[in-house]
């Protein structure tokens, strides 16, 4: 082996060692900077959340009491005014939302994953639009709901289910995308096993694909719902503006309001009592949100561990 060769071989080995090591190239400090940056972002997000919670807790604590949920909102009895109508309104809207968005979203996901031919232009067009819809600002859905659901063809009026439908449009893309991910994660071998035994496509989907996908679908749906429960802007447009002192009469009759709208109502009033009430409402809403997200994370962890 002559000298030049030896140098080349050594150089090559050294290069490989360096590539594998990373420390000698200044790779380490770049990694450190990046890490610091990531932690910095995380801290910002966390501190913001903490600030909101602390701020709301400190201000709203005096009004975290039973009256908050048992009493109707009132401008006269400021000290004991509650938000029962908003709590019931939120329940109505969310129930209407769930029974609407879950069947539609899951069906759409099944169709796109199991039946649609992904090479057809119209299937790709639908897929693209589902993704785009997920990025549309919620106020646009509010305007849509006002024009087509409250008025227009559906003409439901300003009832709880009009709010449900509007929010359904808003979170439908999220539910579809989450369900598709969950369905896609079901191993092909399971489908083959079932079809190979002479099961029909529907039997296969119903007995194997959906049960395996349920945890993912539930997780995605809960996260979508927790977005919907905090929405204010679109609901302001479809009728949840009124200051109501009674619970909704049903999904299709009677005025309604929801938690974030009620909070908004109070927060803009000058009296201190109402501001405290608003803070108490925020605590309530945050608590519901955290519970929903915890359930979603719990389900996800439970099934990723078992799988």
């Amino acid at each position: 082996m002559n000298g030049a060769n030896r140098v080349a071989v050594a150089g090559a080995r050294r290069t490989t060692e360096l590539r594998l090591d990373g420390s000698g190239r200044g790779g380490r400090w770049k990694g450190e900077v990046f890490r610091a940056l990531l932690i910095f972002c995380l801290v910002i997000a966390f501190v913001t959340l903490l600030a909101v919670i602390v701020q709301a807790s400190v201000r709203g604590m005096p009004r975290i009491d039973l009256n908050l949920i048992t009493q109707m909102p009132s401008t006269l009895d400021r000290e004991t005014s509650g938000m029962q109508s908003a709590i019931f309104g939120t329940i109505y809207v969310m129930v209407g939302l769930i029974v609407t968005v879950v069947p539609i979203g899951v069906s759409a996901a099944i169709f796109l994953e199991e039946f649609a031919d992904g090479t057809k232009w119209w299937v790709r067009f639908i897929e693209l639009n589902v993704q785009n819809l997920a990025a549309v600002p919620s106020i646009v859905f509010g305007i849509l709901g006002l024009a087509f659901i409250v008025r227009g063809p559906l003409d439901l009026g300003t009832v709880a289910y009009a709010g449900s439908l509007t929010l359904a449009l808003l979170v439908l893309p999220t539910v579809i995308l989450a369900s598709r991910e969950a369905i896609r994660a079901v191993p092909t071998s399971l489908r083959q096993a079932s079809l190979g035994l002479g099961a029909t496509k529907w039997q296969t989907i119903w007995h194997h694909v959906l049960p395996s996908a349920v945890p993912g679908i539930v997780t995605g749906t809960i996260l979508a719902l927790s977005r919907a429960i905090g929405e204010t802007a679109p609901l302001l447009l479809v009728g949840a503006t009124v200051f109501v002192t009674y619970n909704p009469d049903g999904f299709f009759e009677g005025a309604y309001t929801v938690l974030p709208v009620q909070i908004f109502q109070w927060a803009v009033r000058p009296q201190e009592e109402f501001r405290i009430l608003a803070a108490a409402g925020i605590i309530l809403l945050l608590a519901v949100l955290l519970v929903m997200n915890s359930i979603a994370i719990w389900i996800r962890n439970k099934y990723t561990r078992d799988a």
Binding site: L190, L197, G198
Partner: peptide, 25 residues
């Protein structure tokens, strides 16, 4: 019928794995 390269039982009981074919057909 078919048996695959990688064993692919259903995530069900042993009994239900065997009974599945007769049931659905």
């Amino acid at each position: 019928g078919m048996v695959f390269q990688k064993a692919n039982p259903f995530p069900k009981s042993i009994y239900d794995n065997v009974a599945y074919g007769p049931r659905v057909t």
